[in-house]
Simulated assay, not measured.
Amino acid sequence: MISKSLPLALLPLLPQVSAWGTLGHDTVAFIAQSFISNSTAAFAQGILNDTSSAFLANVATWADSYRYTTEGAFSAPLHYIDALDSPPESCNVDYDRDCPEEGCIVSAIANYTTRLQTTNLSATERQKALKWVIHFLGDIHQPLHVENLEIGGNGINVTFDGTATNLHHIWDSNMAEKLIGGYSLEDARTWAGELVQEIETGKWKNQSAGWLTGLDVRNGVDSAMVWATDANSYVCTTVIPQGEAGVEGKELDGAYYDAAIPVIQLQIAKAGYRLAAWLDAIVEAEKGVEHGHGGGGQKRKEFELEDWMVEARRVRRAFGWNCGAEGHRH
């Protein structure tokens, strides 16, 4: 586990995981591919220059690799929003309180949705915008990407299947990979097929329409806040229902895993279904949307390709992952 006193200069050198891990992000993308319209598929394939059967999944984790480049370092704080709430007593997200001037996942979704619709941008910038939208729609559904406590759970030591790790990591990767048995592209395709079936004819058939409540591509901030609030609620009910003390230092592959897995499956399904609807809405929207359009009260949304200094706490959150994490890197 990373020491909380580790010099900030060393943090970017540490191994890292992405929200949901490769398995989760690829599964979200495959679910979206199952629901998007033919015109949206053609739109995305054209921008991505990819007509393969995994055209969205192939770029689903690009944003995590890109943020480790010199050019993309500015985007690290855009993968989360630090909800300054008090779980498990109270879970809530407030845009004005929790999204700083350098941006957060909510403002990033709004910004890159607008940039994707801006036809006078270069092909490279529109492609990046689409990749970010695909990735951030996944990230915002991971409950610990919508929580400030202990750097989104990175500072809470746990074990899983006998291996020392942290709470954030098991929500990103360990629990989903235990359920599915791997994290390959084909594992994700298979899992997506199972979740799509549950959406279309199974246990979520009657509730999936409700997942699109509040979706308005003209107002990315308000739409993303619906998703952020939804994900954040599980911090109180499922992630740490008994507080930090209920998980700190404990083995979580038993009853905790059994309670968490239905939420992970549900959130992955929601993310894919909402991503499909969001991309469809982008394609259907009128052309020529003004750069920066959106609801009132939005903070800085234009994230050009430049570096800026971020406060120490947010750098720690962006790079403060488990330096002793076992196994593969996501």
Score class of each variant (00 low, 15 high):
L149P: 01
L23D: 12
G214N: 01
Y256K: 09
Q142Y: 05
L149H: 09
G103T: 15
G296T: 11
G181S: 11
D253L: 04
E200L: 13
E150V: 00
V310L: 05
L130Y: 00
T190D: 12
Y256N: 02
N206Y: 04
N219T: 10
A192S: 13
V310E: 05
D139N: 03
G181Y: 08
K270G: 05
L48H: 07
F136W: 08
L23Y: 09
T118S: 07
G296S: 14
D222A: 07
T165Y: 04
L195F: 08
W204R: 03
S5N: 14
T113D: 09
K287F: 07
R274T: 01
Y80E: 06
I140M: 01
R329W: 08
S75P: 02
G162P: 03
M225W: 03
G182R: 10
L13Y: 07
I199Q: 10
A224L: 03
Y257W: 02
G324H: 11
T237E: 04
D50Y: 14
V106G: 08
C99L: 13
W278Q: 13
D216R: 10
E311P: 00
A129V: 00
E311Y: 09
G295K: 13
D139C: 03
D258P: 10
G193V: 02
E248V: 15
A60Y: 09
L48V: 11
A9T: 13
A224E: 07
W308H: 15
S233D: 01
N166G: 10
F160D: 01
R126T: 05
H79W: 02
N111T: 12
W132I: 07
F35P: 04
Q267I: 15
G292V: 05
A60H: 07
G249K: 00
D94A: 10
A164G: 10
D222G: 02
E244P: 06
Q298G: 14
E125K: 14
S184V: 04
R313T: 15
G193Q: 09
D64A: 07
Q33C: 05
T159V: 03
F136I: 12
A259W: 08
A192Q: 05
N154T: 07
G292W: 04
A57V: 04
D280L: 06
D94L: 15
T229M: 02
